[in-house]
Amino acid sequence: MKKLLHISFLLVGFFATAQTALYNSGNMQLHGNAELGFHTNLINESTFETTSGLVGFYGNNPIQVSGSIAPTLFDAEIFLPSNLFLGTTLNISNNFNFVEGNVLSSLNNQVVYLNFLDNTFFTGENDASKVTGFAAITNKTIFSFPVGDQSQLRPLMLESDSNNELAICAYLRQDPSNPSAISENFDIEEKVRNIGAITDKEFWILQGDVPSTVTLSWNPESDLVNLGNTVEDIILVGWSKTGNLWTVIGNTAFSGDLNQGFLVSEKFVPSDYAAITFGTVPLPLDTFAVNNPTLGNYFVSPNGDGINDVLIIDNLGESESNNLQIYNRFGQKVFEMDNYSDEFNGFSNQNNLVINKSQGLAEGVYFYIVTLFDLELNYQGFLFLDK
């Protein structure tokens, strides 16, 4: 095994100095805890499947992965400020670590993507390191796609009825009516009558054949303050492939305000739509109504001093049947309880993608939704968690 690893590193060094790429026409493998670092392009024309070890993409110059056969890596990471460009699909079977740099692919080519297989997970995604082309999943039901544009992470959470044989996702901070990165366009004036307005700031492409819900968040750059009057106006809309116009997908939950928040969609089949984004309900002709009043914003500091150690919602006991849900800024549910009574103290009770659950949730802003079933009321707002 040591001999094979030694040869692999020699090959990388040789090709890095002798030409602009490592050309694989054999059968590259890693064994045990082997680590292989690429500082040059990879042209893959034969089997390259690792079942252990780490493959990293490093350096100050851009690196491209191309060729007719998609490599499958066990663990991989990117520490490449000049970015990793995919000319062919790159499969990951265990873990992908975003350290620095983006993974790019053509937004005009939906068959090339960073593909997270089966039980694969990722870590470290942030505004400076994410997928700025297409990300994909294979044999997964729940997944948060680490997509965005050059400057910010704009993830999409997918929750499907069953495993997706394949689902792909990309984010574009561009006008859907005239996007510069793709050849298609989705005129925001072509819409059904029960849509008031559609954002010209951003949209997502999501494809998959399994009925699913999505969670999408917005921030000040989404500019929803100039789209709707209140957060209750915001709805998820999709460009119908059959109708060639924007139609309502709808929401089952939302929280936040027009500057920052998220929504959870109604169930839909992603591949029925070429693009999805934020729209509004038509504005009332005579009067303005707010359907969901807020209980206010809260501060929780679980430090044991007896002050604000838990989330206390006054008078919630007046409802004999209520439900509290708390979400992070990306719309990931971190806490839920029926008939809530002052139990939330900064820890998640959800069996999902929360990392380091035993250490408690990270400090920051969270969104809550309170439903009073017996009173037929729904409230939403913010809470700030201070560690």
Rank of each mutant, 00 (worst) to 15 (best):
Q332C: 02
S222Y: 01
K241Q: 15
L166W: 06
T120M: 02
M1Y: 00
E165R: 12
P81K: 08
Y58F: 14
G59P: 12
V231F: 14
V225L: 01
E221Q: 10
G238Y: 14
T371G: 07
G56I: 11
D127N: 15
R193V: 13
F299R: 08
K357V: 13
F335N: 06
S25L: 11
S301P: 01
Y327T: 00
N352S: 11
T287A: 07
L30W: 09
F268Y: 11
N60I: 12
E221A: 12
I7M: 05
S129A: 15
K387D: 13
I137S: 10
S46R: 08
D127P: 07
L166E: 13
S301F: 11
S68A: 14
G13K: 12
L42T: 00
F373Q: 07
I312D: 12
F96I: 02
N349C: 09
N95D: 00
F122A: 04
K333E: 14
N194K: 00
N229E: 09
K387R: 15
L54E: 04
S25E: 13
I188M: 11
V231D: 13
M337Y: 07
V214G: 07
V147I: 15
A136M: 10
G381E: 00
A128K: 10
F57G: 02
S348W: 09
F122R: 05
W204T: 01
V210F: 01
I326F: 03
T123M: 08
L10V: 05
L5S: 08
T252E: 09
M337Q: 15
N91K: 14
P302H: 11
F57L: 06
L84Q: 09
T120R: 06
P71M: 04
Y340P: 10
N41S: 12
A34E: 14
L224M: 07
N291G: 07
S151I: 04
E318Q: 11
N163S: 13
L5G: 02
N178E: 11
L236Q: 00
D161C: 06
Q350E: 15
G67W: 05
F299Y: 12
F344A: 05
P179M: 08
Y327K: 06
L316T: 06
G133D: 10
V112E: 12
I235H: 01
A274L: 09
V370D: 03
V334R: 06
S162A: 15
N33E: 08
F344Q: 07
E232I: 00
N194R: 02
F203G: 03
L80R: 11
N91A: 09
S301D: 10
N292M: 02
E221W: 05
I313A: 09
D161H: 04
F57N: 03
F203R: 04
Q110F: 02
G148D: 05
E77S: 12
Q29P: 00
T138N: 15
F373Y: 13
I78P: 00
S66F: 07
L42Y: 06
F186T: 03
V248S: 07
V210I: 15
E165G: 15
I249Q: 00
N323Y: 13
